[in-house]
Design a protein around this nucleic acid. Structure first.
Lengths: 128, 128
DNA sequence: CTTCCATTACGAAAACCTTCGTATTAGGTT
DNA sequence: AACCTAATACGAAGGTTTTCGTAATGGAAG
């Protein structure tokens, strides 16, 4: 019975995003991705990945000299948890209020808006 | 020159949500609101509010015996920061992907969906 | 085999978050 | 004034997060 892994922290979430995109990555690759956003040392990235391994957030492949890390928690579920948390904590559960803030915090491209519209169509389509 | 207040923590964000809704509140009122979500002691709520006062997140009115706390940071800006953070950290800045997760993490009501649609109309309306 | 270098392992420091016990204070009541 | 109650103030414990220095290790090259 392996326990449910805990929620990722802010930094851990950034790493998961990298791994979800890449499929898997070495410490060096993760470190470079993080460093591009904000100065991040190599051992810092390594330590985070080690902790995330203990927590069960990622899986480590030690066959190669440079270990490869892969996400162990599903992207969809984790992203939903994160959004759901924020939704409850700050928006009283109102998805439309959160969406409003999301759209005003970045100017979304027309393509983005169109994609959202399609999404709404699909959701309403399922209802009938 | 008073510095920009730091980002609220998770617990602090919950308190801000209470204060934004209420306008202002005493420690007791905040504590009861928090306690409804999750067991929260009185001195815990008090301490958090004191820390938030130091950070400049809330303003304290000491004229009455029971001090009244009011939000000092604007709701709109803070919510945008929170959503923006999550957007960058986990969604690569893609608002539509975040919206998708928001809508699938709660089943939004038809009213919610309609409100979002109207929101999209407004945004696209401004473009021309 | 020895050397060298990139990588992993380990530990610890520093900051922060959350909670709570205890002391102090203010105001009203008798 | 003395007392009771509810509120604030204070500090500290316990946990977590993030960062980094330093040591150990493995593999490749000479």
């Amino acid at each position: 019975m392996s326990k449910e892994p805990p929620r990722p922290t802010q930094s851990e979430l950034e790493i998961l995003a990298v791994l979800w995109d890449a499929g898997s990555a070495t410490v060096r690759e993760v470190q470079q991705a993080l460093d591009a956003r904000r100065p991040t040392g190599y051992t810092t990235a390594l330590k985070l990945l080690q902790i995330m391994t203990e927590k069960g957030l990622v899986r480590r492949d030690e066959r190669e000299r440079a270990h490869r890390y892969a996400p162990k928690v599903p992207r969809e579920k984790t992203e939903q948890q994160m959004v759901g948390d924020l939704l409850d904590r700050a928006f009283g559960g109102s998805a439309s209020r959160l969406v409003m803030r999301a759209l005003s915090s970045r100017q979304a491209t027309p393509e983005e808006l169109e994609r959202i519209r399609t999404l709404l169509d699909e959701i309403e389509g399922e209802k009938r």
